[in-house]
Write a protein that binds this DNA or RNA. Structure first.
Lengths: 363, 363
DNA sequence: TTGAAAGCGCTAACAG
DNA sequence: CTGTTAGCGCTTTCAA
């Protein structure tokens, strides 16, 4: 790749405006404390030369980057085809942009990439990290922790080593699952099955727990045969649904761990000639639009505001909630950034967003 | 946001190893020209201190960043919910990673963000840019051009100002469209309609041209009523399909500009009780999986290898194909990066990837 | 081979 | 208010 064209430096601007570098720097960084005529001369020089500050030089001295890394662990190949990440990224991007921060996307395709990511984070490119899609045995959180970068996690982290409390944003997976199953029960269904998500992720575990909470207090009680392990994908949902029908042909309701797998289940049901919701009622999770709305039949599901989760993660990071015990003193900056945050509350270690049941035709 | 914890510097490593900074630098950057015992001492010191080079400092002197920006213009809100970008990003990410480059994602939510992006690019954060989703009237390419950063475009750029030839990667939109329409004609369909994409994008225009190419040589000739303008979205496809049925209830085939809009069309067809393909044959474009495969009926479509396009874009950039006339001399680096590129061919200004017709049930 | 020294472009005291 | 002066942490001549 060719070197970028050499651009004018502060020095050049200073020379052109007939002032010192310091003065130019002041003008460029907000201009306070510089008399107007001078400032104007500087601005003109900046304009004429097309000067743009060199960020590397700036970061070197300020130790700030106005950039945040988003780390998406991608053990399978499932990341970007899942609209979930897309939405979260949108939220993050919006919030970051509003605070003049850049989003640096770090995708990890496998174990090999973990060290690369850790190196990047430790390399002082970014002021913080937003980390997603963690699996229980993931070595990434440790590496990231060691990189010494403030971090907010997307989804409750599931590790149990001594990495200490992590700041994270999640939705009320357990509560949402309860709502879904209760809805099914209220419909008079008695043989309510659950197609789980990938059980190495806490979201799947929590939803399963929620399902069990309700089933335990149900007349029939919990039947293990009604729980089929799956993996959040449409294909997984199909497979699990087939397995379920083999085990319990009399099933009359299905709570799928997410909309994608619910869609898979719907397909199998249709192909078997089972009517939804008459024969089998189906509830999903996520309210992934437009999928959930346009499925056949439209999917009743538990909505979580994914984009908002993303925004919140970014805000927590910028507000300094992710500060590790050692280093303090950032709330001021977040406030000065013109944001709406900056309240020096005690940093929460986990923020749980509510869920709502969206009733459509499938249950 | 809190400052990152202070990390050890080259200086510290040098002190610990009892050598000069220069020696440490040499070891860290490949170690050639340093006698083994010394090098070993340095490596141990690096290890013990957990030293990671500060990239800002490094870039300041090398003027290289090993980072590439991906710019996605998002005039509408349609970017991340479209699997298209996801796939392209995957390809880009893979290629970049293989060459130890970082991907920096720049999302623009609207006009305001354009200057921000231009500033970022000019700010010397990245060695090059990959730019997408351009619309005909987009001011972004000009801004990016002025930022003086080597750039590869995704999709044939459509502007006509004097910005000079651009390097881009695209699929054979026109040829693919021809194939699709010929297939429909070969099926004996005579009233073949086209639901266009957003016509401010060259891909939509090219596909429309391909459709017209074939229709022109068809017995009936081209009937303008059979062309309905749409926008690449499922909702747009629905609307266009309704409009089409209003105009020409006798339509017996539809070529949709992409799979997403084809899905919309399919839905309207089903709702009107028209059978696909018996009454109306439908062909899409993209072969967006798993959507195209799992639609009802499965969609016959024109496949383009989107992920490969992404990979190719990244490779072209890294190989220095995007060098602007002024600055030369990067092929060596790309080769030394351990890549498979680096052949000093004349830089192509456009690379067109082939398309294939994938026959499924819808036509 | 190794080290000393000179910056890369910028900000941030500190004087004036 | 403005300029002068140190560096930020690193690479890279240039000598030794």
């Amino acid at each position: 790749m060719p070197d970028a064209v050499s651009r004018p430096t502060l020095e050049a601007v200073a020379a052109r405006a007939g002032v010192s570098r310091a003065t130019v720097s002041r003008v460029v960084n907000g201009g306070s404390g510089v008399r107007e005529p001078l400032a104007e001369r500087v601005r003109r020089a900046v304009e004429e030369l097309g000067y743009v500050p060199n960020q590397a030089a700036r970061s070197l001295v300020t130790k700030r980057h106005d950039a945040v890394a988003v780390v998406i662990a991608e053990p399978e190949t499932r990341v970007f085809t899942d609209p979930f990440f897309a939405l979260q990224l949108r939220g993050i991007s919006k919030e970051l942009t509003a605070h003049d921060n850049q989003l640096v996307l770090l995708l990890t395709e496998g174990r090999d990439d973990h060290t690369r990511v850790a190196r990047y984070l430790a390399g002082g490119h970014v002021d913080g990290a937003l980390v997603f899609s963690l699996h229980l045995d993931d070595p990434l959180p440790r590496l990231i922790h060691d990189a010494g970068v403030p971090t907010v996690f997307g989804g409750r982290p599931g590790w149990r080593d001594g990495t200490g409390p992590a700041v994270y944003v999640d939705c009320d997976n357990r509560g949402g699952a309860r709502t879904a199953v209760r809805h099914l029960a209220a419909l008079g269904r008695t043989r309510i099955a659950h197609l789980t998500g990938a059980l190495d992720q806490t979201s799947a575990v929590d939803r399963l727990d929620g399902y069990r909470d309700v089933m335990a207090e149900t007349p029939g009680g919990a039947d293990p045969a009604l729980v089929v392990e799956s993996d959040f994908t449409p294909a997984g949902g199909e497979g699990a649904m087939r397995e379920l029908l083999a085990r319990r042909p009399d099933v009359d309701a299905v709570f799928a761990a997410n909309d994608l797998s619910a869609l898979g289940a719907l397909r199998v049901l249709r192909e078997r000639g089972l009517r939804v919701p008459q024969d089998v009622a189906v509830v999903g999770f996520d309210d992934m639009l437009p999928l959930a709305e346009q499925s056949d039949p439209p999917l009743t599901t538990v909505r979580q505001d994914i984009e908002r989760m993303g925004r919140l993660m970014a805000r927590l990071l910028l507000d300094g909630a992710a500060t590790r015990p050692a280093a303090r003193g950032a709330a001021a900056r977040a406030g000065a950034d013109g944001g709406d945050g900056g309240r020096p509350d005690a940093p929460p270690s986990g923020v749980i967003l509510p869920t709502t049941l969206i009733r459509r035709a499938s249950a």
